[in-house]
Amino acid sequence: MIDFLQIIVSGIAVGSSYALMGLAMVIIYKTTEVPNFVQGEMALISVFLAFMIINSYGAPVYVAFPCALAFAAVLGGFLEFAVLRRAKEPNILSLIVITMGLEMVLMGIVSWKFGADAKTMPFPISPYDSVALGEIFISGLELLTMLTALVLMIAIFLFYRFSKLGVAMKATQQNKVAARLMGIRTNRINLLTWGMSSVVGCVAGLLISPVVMDPYMMWDPMLKGFTAAVVGGMTSLPGSVVGAYIVGVIEHLFGAYVSIEFKSVVAFAIIVLVLCIKPSGLFTRHYVKKV
C-alpha cells in the first residue's frame, strides 16, 4: 500500500512539470490556436542562458533565474511578432511546420553554443535529498516542483478569471473581429500571450534542469505536456493539469508494475486512447455554436 502511494506521489510530482508544459501550450493554443511545438525549446534556451549567466559571470541563482524568465518572456513575444504573425491565415499543418522548424533552430543554437554533453545546473535544492511525508519519501526538488506548479496554476486561473487582460485574451480567441471592435489590440494580446506562456514553460525548464540538462532535456516533458493538453481538450487549463497528473501517475504505475523500458511511451498510448474515446478531450465543456 505504501509502495502504491509512493508511486502515486512520485507520479504527481513528475506530472507537475508536465502540467507546467501543458499549461504553457494551452495558454498559447487558447488565444492564438497555434499548437506550439517550439514550447520546449523556448524554455531550453532560457535555461541555458541562466546556466551561462551563473557559470560565466558567477551570478547567483536568484539573479540568473529571473534573468532567464525575463528572457523567456521576450523570446516568446519575439517569436510571435517576428514569425507567427507573418503567417497570413495559416492552417494547422503550416503552424505545426513553422513551430517544428523553430524548434530545430533553437535546439541547434543551444547544441552549437553549449555542446551536446550533459551539464549540471547549480541548483539550490538537490534532487537527491529526500523529505519524508509520513512514510512516503519525496525529494526536495519534487516538492518544490509540486508547490510551484500549484501556485502558478492558481495564479493563471485567477488571471483568466478576474483580470481585464485575461478576459480580453479569452475574448480575442472567441471572436477576433469583435475584440478589435472593442478596441482590444489583438496583435498585442497575442504577443503578451506568447510571452506569458514562454515564462511558464521556462519555470518548468528550470525545475527540470537539476535532474537532466542537455539540448534534449525539454523534448520529453514537452511531448508529455502536449499529451496532457490533448487529454484536457487543448483549451482547458484545469483539464491540462489533471491530464498531466494522469499521465505522470499512469507512467509511474506502468514503470513499476509492467515495464520500466516502455514507461515513457505510455503517454502516446494515452493520446491514442483519448482521441478514440473523446476526441474533444476529457474536460472540455466547449459551448457548441448554434449555426
Binding site: V167, K170, A171, N175, A179, M182, Y287, K289
Partner: peptide, 13 residues
C-alpha cells in the same frame, strides 16, 4: 458576442 464569456464580461469588454 463573446459566446464563452458571461454577459457582464461581454459588457466590460
Amino acid at each position: 458576442v463573446f459566446e464563452e464569456l458571461s454577459v457582464r464580461e461581454n459588457l466590460l469588454m
